[in-house]
Design a binder for these strands. Structure first.
Lengths: 214, 214, 214, 214
DNA sequence: CATGAATGAGTGTTCATTCAT
DNA sequence: TATGAATGAACACTCATTCAT
């Protein structure tokens, strides 16, 4: 069931890393294998040689990333020391951190989802989403059983709100900065700022949506 | 002041329409002018002839769409017969309708935002977003003055939640259907269903976020 | 035998004139019919409409020019008041004037001669050259009979020197000016200067070549 | 100081050679890269691959040729065994040989000079002409100092006569043959014939122009 | 008589990929 | 294992020309 994580050579990792960067900046079609090869400091032919094709390279990028990204919420579910809402909050922080830290890759993911759906990459994304949704569903249901959460919660819409809000803020960074006069913030400063803002906003949204508290 | 809407010929409209469709399906770079010409049933050369270049065609697509899309909430603001929350609700329905009706175009818009920012198209999008934000800001502030809305509302984050949630649901359509066992719904049926769901979800989110009501 | 000179309309003349100018500046292939149409202030389609094709337009340009250019030396030959050398000198001045006055057209002529030879335009040029050569041959032979000119003159080589020298000076104008520090001369000033220089140089060359005088 | 002659591969040389031929036959614009590739027996893409662009290929053609063509008259100037007139005669033979041997390339050179002047190729030609003129100027001045040559010689006009006459004969080959009934001569026979004729004609012209001899 | 619209062939160039070494 | 050389297909675009009006 579990896919084996492939051990890549240094050059292969350099290629994957460069591809990830360039794909997110200029898109899949907008990036040539020559660009990737140059960025990675390897010969053009190496890409076909190692990965078979440009498409397969894209898959490799996703393969590697998605295996890293599976939300580790299994332990979270088992933890009896904290409330279910606290677990949700940890989940939110976790997701915001992941997205902000790896904006580049998330941009590729969004781009791929927007395009046609029948690609190997789209399948990988779908798989990832399914796994995550199952875990979260379990968490919410546990909260409902314990009486901490309301009945009749549309988990998918809440997930869409979580993912969508974070995505929107990240891709609209320039707009967001301009409107909030944040032009003089450095990238780390901005990340810190937006992380806090997003976290608070989403936690509030989830709290009032999930719980019976006023 | 207001930019004149250009009157296009039937062929020009066919090209714009085909371009809109293909750009959203396979991206700008992934779509060749030959594809567009074939889809529109015109000669390849017509695209350069009418629009000058592929880039300019993209701009024309956006120019036409964005002029159609400016939210008409000015009248909404003036209306004294309804509460501010009702105005917000109308706004939500309006946005959901727009996005669901014109999924294709919204997909292009998302793609363009994800890529580099210094294109004429990105400028058009930014302009559109600024205009809309101003109107909404006004609406929220009016609601705050009247005491209907809470103080200290982060309008941009709320907008991100609105736009992001809708985007997320639309681009994850397949995932959404699969998870909710909606595979047997026709496209119109699905649209009706998702419109209602999204509208209710977002109205609830805005209500509990904006107002002091329990 | 004699080809009828066609009477062109004002628009046709405008096209021919513009074509002549642009062909000499950027060459036949380097000039598009759109360029010509714009320069002449007429519709693109007019060129095909009036002249059939771009090639035919080129022929029309030559047809018109070459009929204008046939050296009128027949009368010169009949004149008994002046010596044969004086006739040659008049011929030289005539040729220098023609070339300098109509540099643009002569450039096209040169270009056409350099290219492949089996075009209608090349045939027109050949015809023109033949006619002129006959007249000059007669003039030289008359001079030889009268004892004014040497025997064994290679008329074709002398003609090549005449035509070649003038051509060379005209196409090397920039080089000529730079080397002789004539940068501050206006076009009319330069033309006056070069006409005088060329005339004297060639007359001297012909005198010492043709005559027995020291 | 001296530009390094680039070592080209066999394929590169084939391309340059084919380009030289076709450019002289049908002009720069009249020759497509596909024509060149076919003539050279290589793939179309190789031209961009090796030379970057069609323009750059043209420059490469000139770069290679002009470095070959710089008149080697420095040694001639140092030689004290022969008179200055003999040096001039050697120069004439040298130039006639060069032009007749490399008619194709000289045709391109002429075409380029006729067109607009601000191209890299035009700059290369100008440079070549300047270098050659300097050497010749020195030779003539030395002859004048020694009393062998007349004062007041317009070197540029004499050069124009040399270059122009040879050019004219070469580009008018068909006309020349037809007029002198040389149609049955093979190309080598014609070349031998014209070389001798041109050489004698020009030597005579220079002798009577430069020296005080009868 | 004149033209805007439209076309198919052709342009130079870039692409991902293959292959001989 | 690794790569420079090479390739055919595709690219966006321009061309001279045609045609319906």
């Amino acid at each position: 069931m579990e896919k084996q994580t492939i051990a890549y050579s240094e050059k292969q990792n350099a290629i994957i890393h460069s591809a990830e960067k360039l794909f997110s900046q200029t898109g899949f079609d907008g990036t040539s294998v020559r660009d990737i090869a140059q960025e990675a400091g390897v010969n053009v032919a190496m890409i076909s040689y190692y990965f078979g094709s440009k498409d397969k390279l894209m898959e490799a990028v996703f393969e590697q990333k998605t295996t890293q990204m599976r939300l580790k919420i299994e332990n979270l579910l088992l933890n009896n020391q904290i409330t279910h809402l606290e677990k949700v909050n940890i989940l939110i922080d976790d997701y915001v951190d992941k997205f902000v830290d790896q904006q580049e890759f998330h941009k590729i993911m969004m781009r791929e989802q927007i395009l046609e759906q029948n690609t190997p990459v789209a399948a990988l994304i779908l798989e990832l989403k399914k796994r995550n949704l199952q875990s979260i569903k379990k968490l919410i249901q546990d909260g409902q059983k314990s009486g901490e959460f309301k009945k009749h919660i549309d988990i998918m819409l809440m997930m869409s709100t979580l993912v969508g809000t974070v995505s929107q803020v990240v891709i609209s960074k320039r707009f967001y900065c301009e409107m909030n006069h944040l032009g003089d913030l450095t990238e780390p400063e901005y990340q810190k700022y937006i992380r806090k803002k997003l976290s608070a906003h989403l936690k509030n949204l989830f709290k009032i949506t999930l719980t019976n508290d006023i």
